[in-house]
């Protein structure tokens, strides 16, 4: 079933593991995002799949065939680079035709397929332009067309939105998603932008320090992070270190409701900021509003408590419910909290 399979990939530079024991199966037509902070090994992993970096050990299987030792020019994968890497001395159509030319495809068919690729990315009128005459978004689409025109089994995207400004990035994300669905191509993308990963991916692979932290669908991962790193990298989170005993979690002198009584012992107790509410009575914890920030569709409050600073957001539906300096009570439903056994920090 799995179309692209990475088995125990390791890349070692000197004594440091850039990627350690990385295993992943990608299904045909699936869009998978490698997400993580810079230096987490996600780009190295992509480069190993592309063939530009040889893994120290491990295997890469494509459609059942071992491609680990095959040179990049024989792998036939479509790659979009962060810098787009368009050939500056060639026109848009020559850029797109390059891969077809390398495959010895006849000029007439080449012209037709370049035309189709340009239509696919809505760049028909730009065929005769040079890359330097295009905008950032247009360059990115040329890079996409150039990678797709060779009908690769897998599309690899290395931070494809990194060079675009925020507004354009959102537009291109939606366009990329639609394009990927339309072509139905198996896609592996690298990004450090969690919003981008959540927008685009069928599955997100969260990486940290060369290892996989968590793999899952964006919604599942957001709702059920498996630890402090996942919860704070994917969205915002309040994380308390506590001890689960029976139906509650003890955090210092506080006692919080426990969503999963089956778990006991040292735990991370995670509550998303949007799940917290102000309350006058029955507060789980009290504190002072130290900052209040207006973010358009919601308000963000920072509340100083005895357990440190909490983050609380609520939708912008009318006036804010507290002001800076106010003494407030905060509560949340047990079902909205999430506990995971404590990560052992070395």
């Amino acid at each position: 079933m799995s179309f692209l399979k990475l088995q125990g990939l390791v890349k070692r530079y000197g004594n440091a593991n850039a990627v350690a024991e990385f295993s992943l199966s990608v299904n045909k037509g699936e869009f998978v995002c490698l997400l993580g902070p810079s230096g987490c090994g996600k780009t190295t992993t992509l480069q190993m799949v592309a063939g530009f970096v040889q893994p120290t050990s491990g295997q890469i299987l494509l459609d059942g065939k071992d491609i680990t030792g095959i040179k990049p020019d024989k792998r036939g994968l479509g790659i979009v680079f962060q810098s787009y890497a368009l050939f500056p001395h060639m026109t848009v159509s020559d850029n797109i035709a390059f891969g077809l030319e390398m495959r010895g495809i006849a000029v007439s068919e080449r012209r037709q397929r370049v035309g189709e690729a340009l239509e696919l990315v809505h760049l028909g009128p730009m065929a005769a332009r040079f890359p330097s005459e295009l905008s950032g978004g247009q360059r990115q689409r040329v890079a996409m067309a150039r990678a797709l025109v060779i009908k690769p089994p897998v599309l690899l995207l290395d931070e494809p939105m990194g060079a675009l400004d925020a507004k354009l990035r959102e537009e291109m994300q939606i366009e990329l998603r639609a394009l990927q669905r339309r072509v139905g191509i198996t896609t592996l993308m690298v990004t450090h932008d969690q919003a981008e990963a959540m927008t685009l991916a069928d599955r997100v692979v969260l990486m940290n320090k060369g290892q996989i932290e968590q793999v899952g669908r964006p919604f599942d991962m957001y709702e059920r992070p498996n630890g402090r790193f996942s919860s704070t990298f994917l969205g915002k989170a309040n994380v308390f270190e506590g001890t689960a005993v029976g139906g509650s979690v003890k955090v210092n002198d506080y006692c919080f409701p426990c969503p999963e009584p089956a778990i006991t012992g040292e735990v991370d107790y995670i509550v998303r900021p949007e799940k917290m509410e102000f309350t006058d009575d029955g507060a789980l914890i009290r504190g002072t509003v130290s900052a209040r920030v207006f973010l358009g569709n919601h308000w963000l409050f920072q509340i100083d408590t005895k357990l440190g600073t909490l983050q609380l957001t609520h939708a912008n539906n009318g006036l804010p419910k507290a002001a800076e300096g106010d003494d407030v009570g905060v509560t949340w439903a047990a079902a909205d909290a999430h506990i995971v056994p404590r990560e052992v920090t070395l």
Binding site: A50, G51, F52, K71, P72, D73, K74, R75, G76, L77, G78, I79, F81, Q82, S83, A85, L86, F87, P88, F98, G99, M102, R103, R146, A147, I150
Partner: peptide, 15 residues
């Protein structure tokens, strides 16, 4: 020169 252009060409099948 952007080194990625060489990688891009290789990925498109150029020796």
């Amino acid at each position: 020169l952007d080194r990625a252009t060489e990688q891009a060409a290789a990925s498109l099948g150029a020796s």
